[in-house]
Design a protein around this nucleic acid. Structure first.
Lengths: 231, 231
DNA sequence: TGATGGATTTCGACG
DNA sequence: CGTCGAAGTCCATCA
């Protein structure tokens, strides 16, 4: 990995065109040739970048560019598309290279898949007497997150989201349309379960006879068997 | 901005729980206190990070940690939530600090808004005889990207996407349902225009009587007035 | 290898 | 300040 702090300007052309006026920035060149241009603010997203696979070529500035104070020109060309990033470097304030080796990677716990696990374990959150039929119940248009039966034996389809937006309601509606055509299952009720449900999504869901269920991850995690946790 | 290259491990707890085993990585501390942990590969996204507003506290390791070789512990606490990032540093290979100043920011050209402008200018792409009614035609559930009339005077509603996914078809369907209730406009045809249309979206659109139109940005940009371009 | 859907999404616009 | 939709989205999973 190469780190360069320099005054620079940049031009990206590809899926869009984006220009970066001259300023002092951090340039990171990773082992795979990818380049990140970071400012001293914002979030984790660089101002500009090139994703691998790509190649970096460093060359001398043209005479015209040299007169503007440019000392190096970086051309980063994507290997499989016309995406290209051109960086003009003026003063270089810092430069260093480091051997990092390969990274063992990240271990995650607590994403939507985990919410689904927990709700399947704690299916009574849907109401007393509910039993799990199965997770990822397959249909022609994709799997339903959870299929269950309520106390009276009728079918319940559950769509789980971390953030309950309107598109999740659309998705569940499509599943319900399909499931209700199956005489073995019909009538099927819908439940939209999420850690957070947007007002518009709630309104649309209730409008379509779909119940909403707010999931409390901390509580659910607390109630689950701690031996199944990753760490 | 502070740059540190060090052997480190990290633990993030907040919206999820994520663990990073020990390895050599780049740590970036931005002026606003935010922290990025980058490996020497992947994309522009860090392995782990903390977004501003947050505060970084550096402290000595506990006795137990010191015995494991830990030399520093960084605790990055989000200001408004319980999100927290804990980094244990072992050997530090590099450390430097740089004053970057504020960044003038990025200038973009060629996003969805631009596609909409170009299609409005070149409305005949919908077919001979089409005329523009207006862009961002307001409805109760949000603005329709483009409203036009075809050669015979009947109304056409256009939804524009860069990438034509299934949700765009759903969106246009909702608009059409609504617009078709207006006797002044009905019957309204739908056109789904995008630089790329996913097969499922195409099938669903045609199933609902919605036409699809593939947009070629380069050609459209070539046909437009070059003086209106940003650069 | 391409399609699909989630994401610690981030980011910008608008009400 | 929330809400909503786009993004050079990235990314893993699955067919």
């Amino acid at each position: 990995m190469r780190l360069v702090v320099a005054d620079c300007s940049a031009l990206y052309t590809g899926r869009l065109t984006a220009m970066l006026p001259p300023a002092t920035r951090l340039l990171v060149v990773k082992a795979d040739g990818s380049v990140l241009i970071h400012s001293d603010g914002g979030s984790y997203k660089p101002l500009n970048w090139m994703s691998p696979p790509c190649t970096l070529a460093v060359r001398e500035p043209s005479e015209e560019a040299a007169e503007r104070g440019v000392t190096q020109v970086w051309t980063v060309q994507h290997a499989k598309s016309d995406d290209r990033l051109e960086v003009e470097l003026f003063t270089v304030h810092h430069e260093s290279a480091h051997d990092l080796g390969i990274d063992p990677g990240l271990v995650k716990d607590g994403v939507e898949a985990h919410l689904q696990e927990l709700l399947a374990e704690q299916i009574a959150l849907l109401g007393d007497g509910h039993t799990l039929v199965r997770r990822e119940y397959p249909t022609a248009i994709g799997p339903v997150d959870i299929l269950a039966r309520d106390g009276s034996g009728s079918t319940v389809a559950v769509e789980i989201k971390r953030r309950g937006d309107i598109d999740g309601v659309e998705q569940l509606t499509r599943y319900l349309d399909l499931l209700n055509r199956d005489p073995m299952l019909a009538p099927v009720r819908g439940v939209y379960a999420a850690q957070e449900i947007k007002p518009q999504a709630r309104v649309l869901a209730h409008d379509r006879g779909i119940a909403t269920l707010l999931l409390d991850y901390e509580t659910m995690r607390g109630a689950d068997d701690p031996t199944t946790r990753l760490f």
